[in-house]
Design a protein around this nucleic acid. Structure first.
Length: 576
RNA sequence: GCAUCGAUGGUCUAGUGGUAUGACUUUGGCCUUCCAAGCCAAUAGCCCGGGUUCAAUUCCCGGUCGAUGCACCA
């Protein structure tokens, strides 16, 4: 059995025992990379997602959509996932070891081999030694192991489909409808929370690398020339620790600076990216990430996707896993919309009207088809098209059709000078994408919340979860399980439930044991009914972190608990 | 995916070719006027499949999961 030697073991022990996270399909043998959220885990996950919603939907005004998890092959051909989201692997014929073929080639100084056609690639590999057994590889089959789960849609037809590797593609494919929904104006944002799937080769790290995971993604569509955020002032003075590219190269610690300063100094590409770095910092701290163990690391140029203009990861320090990426914030430019426009033939542009209608003089060439047709017959159409794009001189113009130079005299076309009104232009928006890994967020919050402290000579295990994410918000106990105290306590629990508070009644065992049980699952407050309650109608509220108590009247209890949970008041203020 | 090691109630564990020890937890009862107290009782376990054997939790093979190393990680 694993020793309880590190924080991960301790956190996961509590998580398993108390019903946060379990191995999935355990009774039939669990499968790596899949987990079940138990009663408390599901509650906490929902709390995190709802806090996320309060940032993105309530504050930012972005709307949420829900797309299918399974998509037809064409979506992922267009997005590049079919081609790019794969590892190129070979199996050594001698020892049977699976190897990353492109990495093997790179080890021997052959860069970019992964881009070669399969046949050429095999020839490159032919002479190379296997990195496992050292034998010459010889004939191998180059197979590409795609990280997407494949499936078929419908019976018989065997139409190929994939489980989405990110929720983003659904938002991109809905872009024309979303644009209409937002009444054809930029900028606008759309969010989606849901499951995504990646068939990881080796999902070792518990909750950190899952094959099925939850994402919360936002796609903000902006004008490519307008990357100033209209509400940037909200976060302009917000400070966050930034590990920029130069700092990584020079091995320096993060630089804590305001978003305004970071954008002005060119450390962050634009206000949008900076805005979401700051927003993410606030959000992560609010769900319970320790700000001292949070930083934003800029992707190195060779690390970020070729199309991305700038990309930052929110990284949280884990005692077990080191710095863990929990959020990615990228300026994806127009890559995705261009790709879907190209593959689907659907326009992915926004019409941006000019402030004033521009009158533009332009020269239009009108081929005289009555003359061209009889003269050039089959080639007439191609010649006409070439004419339209040409810049004719006085006598005529020479156009090139199918490699042949043809002189067209001026009487075979007209040149018209005309003035047209241009009311605006079609623009493919750029996309700013903050993408959150909910499962990783939940794990790091558990890890940062986990604490052991000595109380007398006993160890107290406590999850210092923020009230907003704690799965149980308040516990209600009768001090004694008699004299009607239990009845009063049950009534109180019912009243709190009516106010939308997740309250747990518990009358089992000594009062101290009940407090400890709630400490371990992070319940921030406990209400205890004692003999004074019968005298004066007051109960105690006990604070999880300080273990101190304060008396309040039963009448004031729901409002008091509500404001404690929402953070409009604190326990400390209540005691004062 | 490869190599090494491991897997016993919910948790931590003792132990064994003849189905298993203790503690904690949980549940019920007694007791108890605020932080895992005490007493009584109960529930509950040898990862899965195959082989060897009269008999396998134990030995062998395969698998699953976990740890570690390698490889991998938009």
């Amino acid at each position: 059995m694993a020793e309880m030697n590190d924080i991960y073991e301790k956190v996961m022990d509590v998580a398993r025992r108390r019903g946060f996270v379990w191995p999935s399909s355990e009774i039939y043998g669990s499968v790596a990379g899949f987990i079940d959220y138990g009663p408390l885990g599901a509650m906490m996950k929902r709390n995190i997602e709802n806090l996320w919603r309060s940032f993105y939907i309530v504050q930012e005004g972005y709307y949420e959509i829900e797309c299918p998890i399974i998509g037809p092959e064409t979506i992922f051909v267009a997005s590049g996932h079919v081609k790019e989201f794969a590892d190129i692997m070979i199996q050594c014929p001698q020892c049977g070891e699976y190897l990353r073929a492109d990495h093997l080639a790179a080890e021997h100084g052959i860069e970019g081999a992964g881009a070669l056609p399969a046949e050429a690639f095999r020839e490159v590999l032919y002479e190379l030694p296997c990195s496992a057994c050292g034998e010459r590889l010889g004939d191998t089959d180059v197979v590409s192991f795609n990280l997407m789960f494949e499936t078929t849609i419908g019976p018989g037809s065997q139409r190929r489909g994939y489980l989405r590797p990110e929720t983003a593609q659904g938002i991109f494919t809905d872009f024309p409808r979303l644009l209409r929904f937002y009444r054809d104006k930029l900028p606008f944002g759309v969010v989606q929370i849901g499951k995504s799937y990646r068939n990881e080769i080796s999902p070792r790290q518990g909750m950190i690398r899952l094959r099925e995971f939850s994402q919360a993604e936002a796609e903000i569509f902006v004008h490519p020339d307008e990357k100033r955020h209209p509400a940037f002032h909200r976060y302009a003075d917000y400070k966050a620790p930034l590990l920029t590219i130069p700092q990584q190269l020079e091995n320096k610690p993060p630089l804590t600076t305001t978003m305004r300063a970071a954008v002005d100094a060119g450390l962050i590409a634009n206000e949008y990216v900076a805005y979401f770095i700051a927003l993410t910092h606030r959000l992560l701290v609010e769900i319970g990430v320790d700000p001292a163990r949070l930083r934003f690391r800029q992707h190195l140029t060779d690390e970020r996707a070729h199309y991305a203009e700038d990309c930052w990861d929110a990284e949280v320090y884990s005692g077990r896993f080191g710095w863990v990426e929990v959020v990615g914030i990228a300026d994806r430019t127009d890559y995705d919309l261009q790709a879907h426009a190209r593959h689907s033939g659907t326009s992915m542009t926004v019409f941006i009207p000019y402030d004033e209608v521009k009158r533009v003089k332009r020269r239009r060439i009108v081929p005289d088809m009555g003359m061209l047709g009889p003269k050039f017959r089959g080639r007439a159409k191609a010649i006409a098209e070439a004419l339209v794009a040409s810049d004719p001189g006085k006598e005529g113009v020479t156009v090139v059709v199918d490699g042949e130079e043809i002189f067209i005299p001026a009487d075979l076309y007209q040149v018209r000078e005309e003035e047209v009104e241009v009311r605006g232009e079609e623009v493919v928006p750029h996309v700013i994408e903050p993408s959150y890994g909910i499962d990783r967020m939940l794990y790091v919050v558990l890890e940062h919340a986990y604490a052991e402290e000595m109380v007398g000579d006993e160890v107290r295990t406590v999850l210092r979860l923020p009230p907003a994410v704690a799965p149980v918000q308040v516990a209600v106990f009768p001090l004694m399980n008699r004299d009607g105290l239990d009845v009063i306590a049950q009534q109180i629990a019912g009243t709190l439930a009516q106010h939308g508070i997740i309250a747990q009644y518990d009358d089992s065992g000594a009062i101290g044991r009940r407090y400890r049980r709630q400490d371990e699952i992070g319940t921030p407050f406990a209400v205890t009914v004692d003999y004074d309650t019968k005298e004066d109608g007051t109960v105690t509220i006990r604070d999880r972190d300080s273990m101190e108590q304060v008396r309040v009247s039963i009448d004031a209890l729901p409002a008091t608990v509500c404001s404690l949970i929402s953070g409009t008041t604190t326990f400390r203020k209540l005691r004062a």
